[in-house]
Measured scan of single mutants.
Amino acid sequence: KELVLALYDYQEKSPREVTMKKGDILTLLNSTNKDWWKVEVADRQGFVPAAYVKKL
Rank of each mutant, 00 (worst) to 15 (best):
D43K: 09
S31D: 15
K38W: 14
Y8W: 11
T32Y: 10
K13D: 06
A6I: 03
L56M: 10
Y10K: 00
V4A: 11
S31V: 07
Q45Y: 08
K21L: 08
L29M: 08
V48L: 02
K34D: 11
Q45D: 09
L5P: 01
G23E: 02
T19E: 03
F47K: 03
W36G: 01
D43H: 12
P15G: 09
A51E: 10
R16N: 13
N30R: 07
L26D: 00
A42T: 10
Y8K: 15
D35C: 14
V41D: 13
S31F: 08
A50L: 02
L3P: 04
K38N: 07
P49F: 03
W37K: 01
S31N: 09
L29T: 05
K22E: 07
N33A: 09
L28Q: 00
D9N: 09
A51G: 12
L26S: 02
L28E: 00
K13H: 09
Y10T: 00
V18G: 02
E17P: 05
R16P: 05
Q45C: 12
V41F: 13
K22R: 11
P49H: 03
E17L: 06
K34M: 11
D35Y: 15
S31H: 09
A51T: 13
V39W: 00
Y8D: 07
K55T: 08
W36H: 03
Y52D: 03
L26G: 09
K21Q: 10
E40K: 10
A42P: 13
V18M: 13
T19I: 02
L26H: 03
V53G: 01
K38M: 15
V4R: 02
K54I: 15
K54Q: 14
V18E: 01
L28W: 02
Y8M: 13
G46Q: 01
K22Q: 10
V53N: 00
Y10I: 01
Q11F: 15
D9K: 04
N33P: 05
K13N: 10
R16V: 11
D9Q: 04
A42H: 15
A51N: 13
V41S: 15
S31A: 13
Y8F: 13
F47Q: 04
I25S: 03
M20C: 06
L56R: 03
P49K: 04
K21W: 11
A42Q: 13
D43P: 12
V41W: 07
L5S: 04
R16Y: 13
T27D: 06
K38Y: 15
D35I: 15
V41C: 13
L3W: 14
K1D: 08
A51R: 15
V18H: 03
V41M: 14
L56Q: 05
T32M: 11
Y10C: 02
D24R: 04
L56C: 14
T19G: 09
V39G: 01
M20Q: 02
L56H: 06
S14F: 07
Q11L: 13
L5E: 11
E40R: 10
A6H: 00
G23A: 03
K22F: 06
T32I: 09
V18S: 02
K21F: 12
Y8I: 09
T27W: 15
A6Q: 01
K13M: 13
A50F: 03
L56I: 14
E2L: 12
K22L: 05
L26R: 02
D9L: 03
P49G: 02
W37D: 01
K1I: 12
T32S: 15
K21T: 09
E2I: 14
